[in-house]
């Protein structure tokens, strides 16, 4: 998405990225980024919370006019929960899943090899 934003912007179309993986977006470098510090999956706000979802989108859209230079990041003033344990859980690797991840990787490489043979060059990141 960051690459697409850069391409649109370079061709005269202003963009805002509304998302959560801050390090990846900022490492790429994008014009305007509204950062929502939530688990990946709900960049527009917590499921069911219409008030928060409206506020987040309004603030993201406001960046089109408030940003005066590229690499502008604004952090949404919302917390996912008081309990921060979700941060430790994402893509965690430890002794409880090391064997299953190794197996998953073997399966995935087989699938990728088959997809390549079938002419499908596209593949997901983590699945």
């Amino acid at each position: 998405m960051s690459l697409v934003a850069r391409h649109l912007e370079a061709n005269g179309l202003p963009t805002v990225i509304l998302g959560s993986a801050r390090d990846i977006v900022e490492y790429c470098g994008v014009p305007r980024f509204y950062y929502v510090d939530f688990p990946l999956g709900n960049p527009c706000g917590k499921p069911g919370d219409r008030v928060m979802q409206q506020a987040i989108v309004q603030q993201a859209v406001a960046l089109f006019e408030s940003a005066t230079h590229s690499r502008t990041t604004v952090r949404a003033p919302f917390e996912w929960s008081e309990d921060q344990s979700w941060r430790d859980k994402y893509a965690r690797v430890d002794d409880s899943n090391r064997d299953s991840l190794r197996h998953k990787g073997e399966l995935r490489r087989q699938q990728q090899a088959q997809a390549k043979t079938a002419g499908d060059a596209r593949s997901p990141m983590i699945d």
Partner: peptide, 19 residues
């Protein structure tokens, strides 16, 4: 097909990701 955080949330509420 996406790598969102399946342990901590869900995507059954469309406005939470498509505005």
């Amino acid at each position: 097909h996406l790598s969102w955080d399946k342990d901590n949330t869900h995507t059954r509420d469309v406005p939470s990701f498509l505005p």
